[in-house]
Design a protein around this nucleic acid. Structure first.
Length: 290
DNA sequence: AGGCAGGTGGCCA
DNA sequence: TGGCCACCTGCC
């Protein structure tokens, strides 16, 4: 394909498996990666970048990027946090005293938390309310096609908040966003009037960042934690969703606990990388429901 | 055919 | 504070 560079190695400090690569890219952290059977690779979009990735061996990915976009390989390394020591992070989790966590860690060796552009993480998770991953992906794709920049022919970035503010609620509803359209429109208008707000939130320590984020229309505790975990590298953020509630109820015998109590439990039990632990538990539970 | 899906905000005791 | 419910849409 003329538009794409040849495959180049991207070394990983933490070993990986093919299944873990799939889970990292398409397991509910991000919504803009698709497997292309014909090319047998993952193709994804973030910010104003697009890339193709395929598993080469446990410590090497192969990467192809659009020709002429020289900054994309470095941006991809940042997005994947390729140089972070995930193995040490895993070892710091309380797996020695938590057999269920231990099982989940072994099931996804090398699983990592992406560093997505913060503004688009907020957008994607605003779409996530009571939706499953495939439907969230459809909503993101429609917003990109209709409102976002075309990065290369046929591949569109998600709209910026500025671009979203320029659309009407009716236009957003027409993209199938449902009741989320109103929240996205209101948040877009608010962010358009404070252009530095998201950058300030991202730069703030987790507790302040979360407190600020939940003031955006449609952003509650869960969406704020997802955006901070997957879009701002705040690994202490511990999203409490229906899956995690189920896990903690059934596998940790915590039935009857309220979401805020479970959130507190998660932070105390899993520690400063609670969100990282959450991702293993989440992935494991979706594949092996209790 | 009706209920439910990686939630949130508003209203009521 | 704590519980309940509407809210879009599509898929089982």
């Amino acid at each position: 394909m003329l538009n794409w560079s040849s495959w180049k190695p991207l070394p990983l400090t933490t070993p990986f498996t093919e299944q873990t690569l799939a889970e990292t890219l398409n397991g509910g952290q991000a919504f803009r990666w698709n497997f292309l059977p014909a090319e047998s690779c993952w193709q994804g979009i973030w910010g104003q970048h697009a890339a193709r990735i395929r598993f080469y061996d446990t410590t090497t990915l192969h990467v192809s990027t659009p020709r002429g976009n020289k900054s994309t390989p470095a941006a991809l390394a940042t997005y994947l946090r390729a140089d972070f020591d995930w193995e040490a992070a895993v070892d710091s989790l309380p797996w020695r005293s938590d057999p269920h966590l231990h099982k989940a860690l072994l099931a996804y060796p090398g699983l990592r938390i992406l560093k997505q552009p913060f503004p688009e993480a907020v957008l994607c998770f605003l779409c996530s309310a009571t939706k499953q991953i495939p439907q969230i992906k459809v909503m993101c794709e429609r917003m990109a096609k209709s409102l976002g920049n075309e990065i290369i022919p046929g591949i569109h970035a998600l709209p910026t908040w500025e671009q979203l503010a320029a659309a009407s609620e009716a236009e957003l509803r027409a993209l199938g966003l449902g009741f989320r359209a109103k929240n996205i429109k209101k948040t877009a208008d608010l962010l358009a009037s404070s252009p530095q707000l998201l950058a300030q939130i991202e730069a703030a320590p987790y507790p302040e960042a979360k407190a600020q984020l939940v003031t955006l229309p449609g952003v509650g505790e869960k969406i704020a934690d997802c955006a901070l975990l997957f879009g701002a590298a705040k690994l202490e953020a511990f999203p409490v969703d229906t899956w995690i509630i189920k896990v903690l109820e059934k596998r940790y015998a915590l039935s009857g606990w309220t979401p805020p109590q479970l959130s507190q439990f998660g932070r105390v039990h899993y520690g400063p990388l609670a969100g990282f632990a959450q991702q293993f538990i989440f992935s494991y539970e979706r594949k092996n429901p209790a």
